[in-house]
Design a protein around this nucleic acid. Structure first.
Lengths: 390, 390
DNA sequence: ATCGACCGGTCGC
DNA sequence: TGCGACCGGTCGA
């Protein structure tokens, strides 16, 4: 059932009537206000809701009385005129229909066995987290707000596709300006998301696996720049490495202290950007280090009921360039996707060339087993090198 | 002199008074409407202009009479209540002050010796071009509109920094929704710009240099995918090349027909994306082909009076990674910037490692001379190879 | 203050 | 139809 917009429809109808009374056509008005073709129609139908400057500019041109604009408005029933948000939700049987603007579409995504209350607690986690902005370190607060909201979502809905929660819930909620404190008012939330989401994803990786891996003598961490530079300086690789390109660092414990054995490349999605990390990853891989790609593999086409298929395509037949980068070229030491729609590689492939699919239900999973195995192999090679047989 | 908003200020003042009469604090109202902190203050001060749904939702909560909202509004003087645009201009002595929203700032850029009429003709060229959208091939029309508007700008203002015209005029005008036909209404114009601007820039390169280079027996062109694949297939390079990564193709005329001798990598700005093109460019360079980077080198920090410094940094002292990619690593066969603020490399560097700065005043310039020289050298090597001395 | 990497809607092929 | 590359505000270092 579409939300009632009785008041708004009446107001916009009044606007159209005043314009017609003035004798000005829509095109006339667009020309006078220096608007591209079709905007007046768009305002009058409510496809785009005019703001007060637009209302007043139109009234000035057509000589309309502002008071008439608001004549005959129906009384507001309780909750009848909500603010149009870029994300909302409503129950749909036992499921929850999440609605959001997606490019030119009013899109829906069905969350199976979810309630409105749960949805609101996820959005509230985000909004309350973001509201702390201004207290101190702005970005850490944003990163925390996103990472925490996502954790709330995966905890409430363990059966859901994690990538869908990231893509259809947390991302869309972040892009609703009203979920931010107004002091961020004119921030570009889509751009802000990119920066914040990138860091939040690294946080999510580390928070989810760090305690479990610690029990296996392995540390997974977001290192400081100086720490990264120290690691790079000790590596002796054949390419110029940039510390900034290192996302998450893997070290294993030894009697002599922690030893670097790899990095994790964290990406929400690929586009053509996957190639950015390739030179470093290939150099690390060839030198025996571990360098997997860890990704939400988010990608959908705008539409009314978008499907987050990801970018890795089919596992057999005509495989795309992104899949071949991993399965054939070995640019990364394996790939771990948290999108249930990602097609895993055949199990016949060596694990270093395989795309595997994981979730956030238990940190003892394919990713952590891979990391543990790689550390054991690295340590064994290292001990052989350190203590060569006589 | 700031633009008068008498009507708007009065209306928003009425809104505040009605809210105070209701006894609800700003924070109360934000909580009831599920808004982040500070939004009501932002609406009441006009920092963010509320749209009709927001107005009606506030009135419903505070029980205010919509008619009161519009009481006591001053009569609209001629042009007193213009629509807030994301770009506008006003004379400033002999110069023109271009105003636009830039993130959280109301920004200005001074165009020396420019008039309001000239500015409007540039924006009109863009708007009229975009209005043809719907007639046929949507993207070609957008690309043409941008390329043409830029050409109008460089022709009207030959003394201006081309990169500034691209960055502060054409880009900002494109991001004003009202310069598009309303059918594009909810398109993401920033995202649309990225796709469109990338193609438009290739068009601009080709349109500017093609006639002049043709007189030297050289063709510069945007090739079809099949043509690119044919070229790649004939190359025998040591890497997997993707046809999609080829922007603009250089061929020279010979008695046996046109011969491929290079590509041009076209970029509005770099960020970390410069590395995308490196593997192909390096492979081409090493094989004796020509593979320059051609760029607007656009980059500024948001602020009230932004400066489009570009990303290539200082030419001496601590040179950044982007500059070293060209000057030291030789990842590209030279670099040509159309940003007057880009620091050129010292002339002591070989031209294949030099960053040079050009403009659009005469196609007989450093870029075309470079292309011509490279073709002559390529042809000479080719003839030697084809007809080896006995 | 400057430098660097983050990512996704768009739209042709 | 889906794959692929386009680019810039953001924000820590």
């Amino acid at each position: 059932m579409p939300r009632s917009r009785g008041q708004i429809d009446t107001l916009l109808g009044n606007l159209e009537r005043l314009r017609e009374n003035s004798g000005l056509s829509r095109a006339d008005l667009e020309r006078r206000l220096v608007l591209g073709p079709g905007w007046i129609s768009r305002f009058e139908t409510g496809e785009t809701l005019p703001s007060v400057d637009v209302l007043l500019a139109i009234l000035a041109e057509i000589g309309g009385d502002p008071v008439e604009l608001f004549s005959n408005l129906p009384k507001p029933e309780t909750g009848a005129a909500p603010i149009v948000r870029s994300i909302s939700a409503e129950p749909s049987g036992d499921d929850l229909s999440v609605r959001f603007t997606y490019a030119n579409h009013d899109a829906r995504h069905l969350l199976p066995r979810a309630t409105l209350g749960e949805f609101e607690s996820v959005v509230r986690a985000l909004r309350d987290g973001l509201a702390r902005n201004g207290d101190g370190d702005a970005q850490a607060i944003k990163t925390n707000a996103v990472a925490h909201a996502f954790r709330v979502a995966t905890t409430l809905w363990p059966h859901a596709n994690p990538s869908d929660l990231w893509w259809f819930v947390v991302y869309r909620a972040y892009c609703d300006p009203y979920n931010h404190p107004a002091r961020s008012g004119r921030l570009g939330f889509e751009q802000s998301w990119k920066r914040t989401a990138g860091w939040a994803l690294e946080e999510i990786l580390v928070r989810h696996y760090r305690p479990f891996l610690a029990t296996k003598g392995i540390d997974i961490a977001i290192s400081s720049t100086v720490e990264k530079r120290r690691i790079i300086g000790a590596l002796d690789l054949p390419i110029r490495m940039e510390a900034d390109k290192i996302d998450v660092v893997l070290t294993g414990g030894t009697p002599e202290g922690p030893v670097f054995f790899g990095v994790v490349h964290v990406k929400a999605s690929f586009a053509e950007r996957r190639t950015d990390d390739v030179p470093m990853s290939e150099a690390l891989s060839r030198a025996g280090y571990t360098s997997p790609l860890w990704t939400m593999d988010c990608k959908s086409m705008p539409g009314a009921t978008p499907i987050n298929r990801g970018e890795l395509g089919e596992a057999d037949g005509d495989r795309g360039a992104k899949r071949r980068d991993i399965e054939d070229e070995g640019y990364f030491t394996g790939c771990f996707s948290y999108n249930a729609n990602t097609r895993p590689s055949p199990a016949s492939l060596p694990v270093e060339r395989r795309i595997q699919v994981c979730d956030f239900n238990d940190p003892d999973d394919a990713f952590s087993r891979f990391v543990i195995d790689r550390w054991h192999a690295f340590r064994a090679r290292r001990e052989t090198a350190v203590r060569p047989s006589p």
